[in-house]
């Protein structure tokens, strides 16, 4: 079973060596590693997607046998041996085509998806900006702010204190009293803004953002970039998954390029994005 530890003594020394070039760029004399990913492999086992219909007997054997790796169940190898180290104050962009394992890797860093092989060491608690899962479309924005805040681990008092700040930041109330309407009545942009505002209200040691900035209008995108910059200063390390090379370039100073689960390139955002653009053969903006 893979481990996920917080104590600094356990941090693998071999992997920190790989990140020295990036450490120089952060400008600090003694860079503090916040996340060390050491040879991580992640495999999913998927039921019900096998070739053929799956007979009743095979379904029965699936229930009876208690092992996870039932012969015939499909295994998806999403991340294949990725290693890198991230330092305090860095903003790291993760790029790669669809299905290259970016989101899976983020979940492994957050400790939400245990790696099948390899280790992830972290300083502090990494949190995924994934509050959307806790929100309920049938409830009003107001109640979702409270529910989402509690879900991210804020206390009741913290939620009460930051409530106004969250609503203001989301800009939901700019066009009328929308916060008291159910979330299902929101446009997708409005909902995304509220989600980001709730999740970003708390300061994090390591913040992992998965495609959060792609929605929302230009004004909100600018505001959320400022918020991410502020979070970087408070906290330490920010990871950003995005298909927008532009927002990677604007927000991140370092980028990792994943392709089919392997780390293809790791370096300054500008160089990695340029190489990725050449690879995809088009100038995406």
């Amino acid at each position: 079973m893979a481990e996920h530890r917080t104590d600094s003594t356990e941090r693998g020394t071999d992997t920190t060596g790989r990140g020295t070039d990036t450490a120089e760029r952060t400008g600090t004399a003694d860079p503090v590693p916040t996340v060390v990913v050491d040879g991580v492999h992640i495999t999913y086992t998927v039921h019900g997607s096998r070739g053929g219909k799956g007979s009743a007997t095979s379904a029965l054997s699936r229930i009876v046998s208690r092992r996870r790796a039932v012969p015939g169940a499909r295994r998806v190898h999403a991340v294949r041996g990725v290693s890198f180290a991230a330092y305090k104050g860095e903003a790291i962009g993760l790029i790669g085509s669809n299905g290259s394992g970016k989101s899976t890797l983020l979940k492994a860093i957050a400790g939400l998806l245990p790696p099948t092989e390899g280790k992830v060491f972290t300083r502090g608690q990494p949190s995924l900006l994934g509050v959307n899962a806790a929100l309920m479309n049938d409830l009003t924005g107001e109640r979702n702010v409270i529910l989402g805040g509690l879900a991210t681990g804020m206390t009741r008092e913290q939620v009460r204190d930051r409530y106004a700040e969250i609503v203001d930041f989301s800009g939901i109330n700019e066009k009328g009293d929308f916060i008291t309407l159910p979330m299902r009545t929101y446009s997708s942009g409005m909902a995304a803004r509220l989600r980001f505002s709730i999740a970003a209200a708390k300061s994090h040691d390591v913040l992992l953002i998965d495609e959060a900035l792609s929605t929302g209008d230009a004004r909100f995108q600018r505001r959320s970039k400022e918020r991410i910059a502020a979070l970087r200063e408070e906290a330490g390390t920010v990871f950003l998954v995005s298909h927008s090379n532009k927002s990677i370039l604007e927000t991140c100073d370092r980028a990792l390029w994943l392709e089919s689960g392997t780390l293809r390139m790791d370096g300054p955002a500008r160089e990695v994005v340029a190489a990725y653009e050449r690879f995809t053969g088009g100038r995406k903006k």
């Binding site: 949190s127 899962a133 806790a134 879900a151 681990g153």
Partner: peptide
């Protein structure tokens, strides 16, 4: 039924 929540947040 709440895998999204389990995979997104710590609790």
């Amino acid at each position: 039924g709440n895998l999204g929540l389990v995979r997104a947040l710590h609790f």
